[in-house]
């Protein structure tokens, strides 16, 4: 169970969202929608713990979120297997075999990441999520540069993840064809205040 209550978040000193409220149960996915610049990325970064909320609370246990942003964090001079193995070691999960199989990367395992296409890189980035073995996936536009076959592949991965009691929070513009999915339109939470009230002078330093 994962709950967000009356959350307000800002990018820099610009308050984007306020009063964001939702909860997520085991085995469910929530899709975030909204026009460009409405604060989807900012909300996801706040939930992932990369920035602090301006107000409100995120009710979630520590260390159960895996975050995947716009950039995949791939090192171009390491092979696919080395890239994944690094994250497996960091998360203490050791094995990367099932991630390679699930994202159809087995044939590319020994290839340098710099020789991957954009879609293949994305698949590698998403394979990292499987390697983390964390129950909540926070995904920012996961399907960018994936072809239809890979989108279907990824939808299957998410389905398996949800089926095993996981949760997913996904900002996406396309239909993933998932069951049990709820949609939250963020334009309903657009902030009205021009700037955060307590930002002030020290914001540049703190």
């Amino acid at each position: 169970m994962f709950q967000v209550r009356a959350l307000a978040c800002a990018r820099g000193s610009l308050l984007l969202l306020e009063g964001v409220q939702f909860s997520l149960r085991r085995g469910h996915a929530l899709v975030l929608r909204g026009p460009n610049g409405c604060g989807k990325t900012t909300l996801l970064r706040t939930i992932a713990g990369l920035q602090r909320p301006i107000a409100g609370e995120i009710d979630v246990e520590a260390d159960i979120i895996a975050y995947a942003g716009h950039a995949d964090g791939i090192k171009s001079t390491l092979t696919v297997a080395e890239n994944l193995q690094f994250w497996a070691d960091i998360y203490g999960t050791k094995t990367i075999d099932s991630a390679l199989d699930q994202m159809n990367l087995r044939g590319l395992a020994q290839r340098m990441a710099q020789n991957l296409s954009a879609g293949q890189k994305r698949r590698l980035g998403l394979a990292r999520l499987i390697v983390t073995a964390r129950p909540i996936w926070v995904l920012d536009e996961p399907t960018v540069s994936l072809d239809t076959a890979s989108v279907a592949l990824f939808a299957n991965v998410i389905r398996d993840h949800l089926g095993s009691g996981g949760m997913a929070l996904i900002a996406t513009h396309i239909e993933l064809g998932l069951p049990e999915v709820e949609v939250l339109d963020l334009s309903a939470f657009k902030a009205r205040l021009p700037t955060p009230g307590d930002g002030g002078f020290d914001e540049a330093f703190l």
Binding site: Y67, A71, D72, G73, Y91
Partner: peptide, 16 residues
């Protein structure tokens, strides 16, 4: 380099 390719964000959210 880690900042540009996004690894730093991922490391910051990793259990280290």
């Amino acid at each position: 380099l880690d900042f540009e390719d996004g690894s730093l964000d991922l490391l910051a959210t990793a259990p280290v």
